Amino acid sequence: MDNIKINGIKTYAYHGALEAERVLGQYFITDIVMYLDLTEASGTDDLNATVHYGEAYQLVEAVIRSEPVNLIEHLAEKVSRTLFDRYDRILEMDITITKPSPPIDGSYENVSITLNRKRDN
């Protein structure tokens, strides 16, 4: 299936289960893959036949900056609902949210979750 990707949306926000995360905040990196049929857009050069990725970026950033939540799993679910609500053309999506510096003692690059969601018929 065709897809549109928006990679590496870096947003400072205050999500997390620990008090320090909600007080100090941290960066969240969001990657989105939106699956849709791009046949019409590729043939007609019509922006209305696709997802405006600049607008989608702004929606994702607004969700990440919104009211704090405990879990990045829940945050990713909010992102998927927002994009499905706005764009009927999206059939499926993958949302990955990465915490580059979570408060975990140890040696690692980051932690992340990925949700795969399909449009309910």
Rank of each mutant, 00 (worst) to 15 (best):
V79F: 02
A56E: 11
R65H: 12
M34W: 03
Q26N: 13
S42W: 01
T44P: 00
T39A: 13
R65Y: 04
L38S: 03
T50C: 12
N70P: 09
Q26R: 10
E55W: 10
E40I: 07
V60D: 13
Y53L: 04
A56D: 09
R22N: 13
K78T: 00
I29H: 04
H52W: 11
Y27L: 07
Q26M: 12
H74G: 12
V69A: 05
R65V: 07
L71G: 07
E61F: 08
A76M: 00
L24D: 12
E55T: 15
K78E: 02
E67Y: 13
I64V: 15
G54F: 06
E73I: 04
L47A: 06
A62T: 15
A62P: 08
S80W: 00
Y27S: 08
E19S: 10
E55M: 11
R65K: 15
Q26E: 11
L71D: 07
E40N: 05
V51L: 01
L38E: 03
V69N: 03
R22Y: 03
E67M: 11
D46W: 00
D37W: 00
H74T: 14
V33D: 08
L71M: 13
D46L: 03
E21H: 10
L38G: 00
S42R: 02
S80D: 02
E73L: 01
T50N: 12
D31T: 04
D45A: 06
R22T: 08
D37M: 02
A20E: 15
Y57Q: 14
R22S: 02
Q58F: 11
E77Y: 12
Q58H: 15
S66D: 15
E73P: 06
V63M: 07
V51A: 04
S66M: 13
D37V: 00
G25T: 08
S80N: 02
P68N: 14
I32V: 08
V33C: 09
D31P: 04
F28L: 04
T44H: 01
D31K: 02
I32T: 01
R22L: 03
Q26V: 04
T50P: 09
E40H: 06
T30N: 08
K78S: 03
S80V: 02
Y35V: 03
A49L: 05
D31V: 04
V79A: 01
E21C: 07
E40R: 08
A20Q: 13
P68H: 10
T30G: 06
E77D: 15
L36R: 01
H52S: 12
N48I: 08
D46T: 02
I29C: 03
S66A: 15
V51N: 02
A62F: 06
Y35A: 05
A76N: 01
I72K: 09
G43N: 14
R22W: 04
Y57M: 13
Y35P: 01
E21M: 13
E77M: 09
Q58W: 10
Y57K: 11
V60I: 14
E77C: 08
T50I: 06
E19L: 14
A62I: 10
R22H: 05
Y27N: 14
A41H: 00
N70G: 15
E21L: 10
S80A: 09
L24R: 15
L36D: 06
S42N: 12
N48Q: 11
I29R: 03
Y27A: 04
T50Y: 07
A56T: 09
E55N: 14
Y27M: 05
E77K: 07
